[in-house]
Structures are given as C-alpha cells and as structure tokens.
C-alpha cells in the first residue's frame, strides 16, 4: 500500500470510533429536534457537541477540539440553559399545528434537502485525503496561530470588533431603563388596602411544625390545603405535595396504638384478677 492510499483511508480504530459516535451524534441531533422540553433539547445538543469535539480531535484539529468543548459545551450551552431557566415553565412547546400539515411538509423538505446534499457529496470528484501530517508537523496550535496572524489577520481584527459589538449589544438589549419613580413602601401599602383583596401578607406554606417544605400547602381550619400558600411557579408546574390526608392517617395510627395499649392493659388486669 503506498503512502497516498494510507492517508486516504482511516485506521480500523478510527472507523470503529466513527461508526459508534456517529450514531450518538445523530441521536443527539434528533433528540434536539424531537424532545418536547427545551432543557432536554439543550442536553441532547450538548451531547452532540461533545461527540463533534471527539471527531475534530480524530481529524487532527486538536485546537478546535478543545475549543469546541470549552466554548460550545462549556459557554454557549450554559448560556442556553440559563435562558431556558429564565424563560421558565411556560417554555414548553405547544404541539398544536398552526399551519395544517406543516410538520409533514417540513419533514418532506428536509428529506429532499438531505438527498440533494448526499447526492452532491457522492457525485463530487473529491480528491484523495492528504492528511494533516505535514501541516501539523510544527504543532497544530502553532500552525493555526501562524495562519491567523499572517494570512487571516484582518479577519481576526474584525472578529474582535464583532465580539465587542455583540457584548455591548447584549447589554443594551437586556438593560431596562426605569421610566417611572419606584413606589415607596407607604404607597404600596395604601394601594394594597385600597384593593382590599389580600391586606395582610400571604400565608406561609407548611403545616404546623411537621411539614415546613415550600411545596407543602398550608391547611385551612377544615383540613383542605390552601393553594394561596404555595409559590406560583410550583403551582404552575403542579409540584404541590398534598399532606391533608396524612393527619387522618396519623390519627388512625394513634387510635390503633392506644386501643392496642388498652387491650394489653385489660389483658394484664384480667390476668391479675385470675391469679
């Protein structure tokens, strides 16, 4: 086998790695599209990105492989998760189609596009793979740095300007200028009394000293749980623990224990009388 042929074919180890990780990457990509909750999509995408980092390393792009993990999986996906948490519980996608048949049409378009791409790659007269052995001979990072600061130095400078603009833009977009004076505590209390809906502070969650977790609603005098005592977010998620039946169960256990004790006492009394 000559040198060109060895460079154009990968080793068996890389082939095995490719076929296993390609399945993982495709599964992650499908998960990103098909998962209903945004958090699950983000986690699937993070998995795909880590697999792609491994592929970069296998292709001789050592610098990019590490940057992929640090920048993409580390920074960008964490930013995504932050925004998912900020946007909160209402972020779940509605499954109702607003345009009829849009999903099937979209899938059909994607299929056609994929066939087009695959046919294009299959019919392209690709040259044989040279491999990066010579280009990486002085070190991958050194090679990229030499290109970045000579041939692509202008693009590099413009990238710096782009990043500064993006940082300033993000601050401008998320900054909110207060247009009116903040109401004082006195004004707030006057408004609350005038509204007349809930004059004292909202009741605290938890029942006596037994259950003081925030997801346990306080009980009204008749034993029914009061929704008002639980945080609105927990209410929206339906994460409220109902302990109203527990009191009855505990009472029943107490009665059973006391009746057992009484029975024991009576038995002892009878025994004593018999002797």
């Amino acid at each position: 086998m000559n040198a060109a042929a060895t460079a154009s074919m990968t080793s068996t180890g890389e082939a095995v790695q490719f076929w296993i990780l390609a399945v993982v990457a495709t599964g992650g990509a499908l998960g990103t599209v098909l998962m209903r909750k945004a958090v699950h999509s983000a986690l699937s995408l993070a998995g795909t990105m880590i697999v792609l980092a491994v592929f970069y390393l296998a292709n001789g792009a050592y610098f990019l492989g590490v940057v992929q993990i640090i920048v993409y999986t580390g920074a960008i996906m964490m930013l995504f998760l932050f925004v998912v948490m900020l946007v909160g519980v209402t972020a779940a996608d509605s499954l109702k189609e607003t345009i009829r048949g849009q999903r099937w049409l979209a899938a059909l378009c994607a299929l056609g596009f994929g066939v087009l791409l695959f046919a294009g790659i299959a019919n392209a007269s690709l040259r044989s793979f040279d491999g990066l052995g010579q280009a990486n001979s002085g070190g991958n990072v050194q090679g990229i740095a030499a290109l970045l600061f000579t041939k692509y130095v202008f693009a590099f400078e413009i990238t710096g300007a782009l990043l500064i603009t993006a940082a300033v833009g993000a601050m401008v977009l998320t900054h909110r200028e207060r247009t009116e004076r903040a109401p004082t505590q006195r004004e707030l209390s006057v408004a609350r009394v005038r509204r007349g809906k809930q004059v004292p502070p909202l009741p605290a969650p938890g029942v006596y000293a037994r259950h003081n977790a925030v997801d346990v609603p306080g009980l009204l005098p008749d034993g029914t749980p009061s929704e008002l005592t639980v945080n609105a977010t927990l209410r929206a998620r339906g994460q409220i623990r109902d302990v109203s039946a527990e009191a009855l169960g505990e009472l029943a256990a107490l009665e059973q224990r006391s009746s057992e004790w009484q029975g024991q006492k009576q038995g002892e009394g009878r025994k004593g009388a018999a002797q």
Binding site: N59, G60, L64, R127, D130, G143
Partner: peptide, 14 residues
C-alpha cells in the same frame, strides 16, 4: 482541512 492537507479549513471553522 484534512483532505487538502492544510490548516485553512480549521481557521475558518474557528
């Protein structure tokens, strides 16, 4: 980048 044996593709990816 691997096919052509130079690092230009990696710089563009960066």
């Amino acid at each position: 980048s691997r096919m052509h044996g130079n690092l230009d593709g990696q710089v563009i990816a960066f």
